[in-house]
Design a protein around this nucleic acid. Structure first.
Lengths: 346, 346
DNA sequence: TTGTATGCGTTATCAC
DNA sequence: GTGATAACGCATACAA
């Protein structure tokens, strides 16, 4: 067990002054003689005094702690976001407590409970793939509890969100494939209940339409789990069964893209000469695989920074002041690597 | 701002009973009439009462929060460890607060301060690459403050550590290269101040020795930064300058290995036929690169689980009871993929 | 079976 | 300049 920390009381007793004097001296309040101030500070230093944040929290009804709810830490994009969150939190004297849901709704619910029990001042959430209604959030929002959603944002009213231009990212990626000469482009889609999946699908469809390409519903493959194995399997099946084989794949994330690439290669087809592939997210590995994967990069760190900045703003509003709902949209960037370069082949 | 939560006081007032009655009723203490119990619980439910964890912490001088200090979240291995930590913490009603040091000593120091301010019950630490003395830890340990070090463990007395058998992992990896017929094996080493780097180097050297291969000091390349670019550069230089070129590389981590592989390929050499490569850690991308990278996998999740389990044990000791220093060593596993398979080439 | 009083560490409000 | 006291939300020793 941890041994007792020195408290204000200890200092007061040793110096034969009152608690309030010590408290004031430590905070350089006016109306304390320099002499006492000096003595108090010296002793505080010597006893290695540190204010008890728990007591402060209780006193101020504010914990200087924010809760982050995230599907998985082991996910390059999310860990980047956490990094951004952590950075700004730290700089502002806030702590970050973390819960991952492992994509389970049940876990999401209990995590929120735990965080509320711990009096977090606000919540940063990216909800799970299982989450289909948002009552647990609306209930809190109604009580004016500060929440900022990031990446996976719910389609409910009065929320503050930070997201990425998924539509445009997908549109750009698909257009790029088309411009490279790939005309039969399949899409490995994400889970339907995530807005980001739908937006990416929409971007894909819009790009096809704008280039007067009719889309083939059979070529939109839902990949609800999101593992490499899943997309490998589905891609293989797609290329084996169809008569008119696709020559391009736009995947809603890099893992799926990597699985697809392996599937394509396993069938003896070449990337990018036979099939062009573009992913989404720019995972760490994407530049290292063979061929290096073209992808849509998302500013994860920046998303984290923005999300917590907004949250801190909300937290620091005066009571009764409300905030205006808004959605901050960060731009993506198409990163062109070998996996989609049909034109400049050697 | 968050609106007021219901407290015990609110319930007591509304029911015209005392605070203690409510408190006891809620916790099913003996000696409370079923009638009052029922009424209290009903109202608590209705008011959506939740005990204030902050007040509890203050009362019990225990925060049910543990602090995790980690170099970087955006690091596959560490995020895996976090995942394990988070899992066990959650199951035991503990919160995890997170600080990343970004490999900066200064940040490590201030993170620890912040965590102590917040009365964490214990600390889980993997220190930064800049950390060369451990006074900030020994000071705490002397006060009997619970700390468990994981992965990067300091060589100081009376600590509780969880680590991986880095020596054996490196030994196995190097031996494997030798058995495959690679005889001139270079090593991309990690930062010297990390024990893990030294252990891996030792394992490498021991394997060479046991196979009667004299090691070449020039072929031990320190990679203090640990980026892909760094190892790319260094590897390229190594292969360009030497007369007797190496035909094998054992890198102290997968990122370095990936960089080395790219360097080798850029020089027109083939992996694995000309040069065999083995990494360390089994990052997510390692199976996806070309050729798939042989590596030494570390049980990150398990390490997290073990570390926090030990910490909770320490936390739950009675006052004055001390714990026995120990180091739990988890075993690694050599994962053989294409990058090191000289023998079975087609 | 229930109520009262005290303390966890801190600060704000009065008082002197 | 400094001190006493109440309050933040809760649990518990002690009374009744």
């Amino acid at each position: 067990m941890k041994l007792g920390q020195a408290t204000i009381k200890d200092i007061a007793k040793e110096l034969n002054v009152s608690l309030s004097t010590v408290s004031r001296a430590l905070k350089d309040y006016p109306g304390i003689s320099n002499e006492t101030k000096r003595k108090v500070k010296e002793l505080a230093e010597k006893l290695n005094y540190r204010p008890n944040a728990i007591a402060l929290s209780l006193r101020k009804s504010k914990s200087f702690t924010i809760g982050v709810i995230i599907p998985e830490v082991v996910h390059f994009f999310f860990s980047t976001v956490i990094s951004g969150i952590e950075e700004v939190a730290f700089a502002n004297g806030y702590n970050v407590i973390l819960c991952q849901t492992n994509e389970k709704l049940q876990r999401e619910l209990s995590s929120i409970e735990a965080m509320l029990d711990n009096q977090v001042d606000g919540l940063l959430v990216s909800y799970s793939k299982e989450t289909e209604d948002f009552n647990h959030f609306t209930k809190l929002l109604k009580q004016n509890f500060p929440i900022v959603f990031f990446d996976r944002v719910p389609e409910i009213e009065n929320t503050v969100n930070v997201t990425v231009n998924d539509f445009k990212g997908a549109y750009d990626a698909t257009s790029h494939l088309i411009n490279q000469g790939y005309k039969n482009i399949a899409h490995l889609a994400g889970p339907k209940n995530l807005t980001i999946s739908r937006k990416r699908l929409d971007g894909y469809l819009a790009a096809l339409q704008d280039h007067s390409i009719k889309h083939n519903p059979d070529w939109i493959i839902p990949c609800p789990i999101g593992t490499q194995e899943e997309s490998f399997e589905f891609t293989k099946r797609l290329f084996e069964n169809e008569k008119a084989k696709p020559d391009g794949i736009f995947a809603s994330n890099d893992i799926a893209a990597a699985g697809a690439m392996m599937a394509v290669k396993s069938l003896g087809l070449k990337v990018p000469s036979d099939v062009g592939v573009v992913g989404f997210s720019d995972w760490q590995f994407s530049s290292m695989i063979d061929p290096p994967l073209s992808t849509v990069s998302q500013p994860g760190f920046q998303m984290g920074e923005k999300a917590i900045s907004l949250l801190l703003e909300m937290i620091n509003k005066k009571k009764d002041e409300t905030w205006t709902p808004k959605t901050v949209v960060l731009e993506t960037e198409l990163i062109i690597r070998k996996s989609s370069e049909k034109i400049i082949t050697e």
